[in-house]
Simulated assay, not measured.
Amino acid sequence: MLQYTIRRLFSIIPVMLIVSVIVFLIVHLTPGNPAYLILGEDSSPEAIAQLEKQLGLDKSMAVQFVDWIKNILMGDLGQSIYSSEPVIQVIMERVGPTFSLMITAMSLTLIIAIPTAVFIVWRRNTILDPLFTSASLLGASIPEFWFAMLLVLGLGVAVPIFPVAGYVAIDVGLGDWIYHLILPAFVLASVEIGLIARMLRDGMLESVNQDYTKTARAKGVRESVVLMKHVLSNALIPTTTVIGVMIAGLLGGTVIIETIFTIPGIGQLLIDSIHRRDYPVIQGVVLFIAVVYVFVNLLIDLLYAFLDPRIRYD
């Protein structure tokens, strides 16, 4: 296990290098001059050229990329062009709202998806099964931004039950924290609930008539115990992979949801930085998302060994 983990950690290096190259090229090849945006349209060419030199934008792209990689290896993501603050500090200030939104959305997903899948398998071969399939496909097909706008208009404006904007830190109050996150978190979870429940339901249906479940029933074990102890535990292994992908999808989905609900997280920071052409922050945020994605996949692979003792990485 340890050797496998070390190999996977070393394999992250070329992945991050490729991500760095792609992000750098996309950011710097996109039209727009940060110096022009900072000084305004009435600024003189001399002032713009001076600010470009001050920001290091007058250098060639190759030199800028090499300097950026050197700084990353030393743990420095640079400074924000807009605020002159270290990029790492800017990102860390926005991590709390984003991770809070992700944790709430993931909790809602698992709380709803797992019992739903177990119940559908328990009531298999009834009218509930095709209804569940249709509902899961509908949930996965609805665009997040459209569903978010519907909830804002329905539960935030027409019937003002939930707040439609803003974020409250958890140290202010647990109730207010959840109250402000429940609506955007449900939007993020709505797409994933159907996917997780459908995957878990399919996995359980494959195990429900296996020999070990028939043996358990022959011993007089109740059907609910068979489903929870034998069928569900085996179906969780492939579902865990989908949950790992879901976590990465939630991190990407926050870009849209945080903008709609005005949550000051990583997603809104990325959108604001794109508007400002704040190159260091854009590169730092995308690199941060890539690192989280890679490490989540590593943790999911390691989790397999705990869910199934037959899996070994030696």
Rank of each mutant, 00 (worst) to 15 (best):
A189V: 08
F119T: 14
R312M: 03
H180A: 00
I69H: 09
L51N: 06
P45L: 01
K59L: 14
P97T: 04
V21A: 11
T116E: 08
M74W: 15
D278Y: 04
A148I: 06
V255H: 07
D171S: 08
L302T: 09
P45I: 02
G267D: 09
L299V: 14
I170R: 01
G253E: 09
M61W: 12
L232N: 10
V294G: 08
P143D: 09
L77M: 15
I142F: 14
I26L: 15
W177A: 01
S233I: 11
P143A: 08
L227S: 07
P264E: 11
T259C: 03
S83I: 10
I237H: 05
D129A: 10
P238R: 03
V187P: 00
V87K: 08
S60C: 07
R217K: 10
I81V: 13
Y293W: 07
T259G: 12
Y36E: 15
S83N: 13
D129P: 00
Q54E: 15
Y212W: 08
V231T: 14
D58M: 01
M199Y: 02
Y167R: 03
V221T: 13
V168Q: 02
S20C: 10
G253M: 07
E258P: 05
V245N: 09
D308C: 03
L151W: 06
I12W: 07
A248C: 07
S134M: 09
L17V: 14
V281G: 04
E46A: 09
L128M: 12
V285K: 02
V87F: 12
Q64V: 09
I257V: 14
F99K: 03
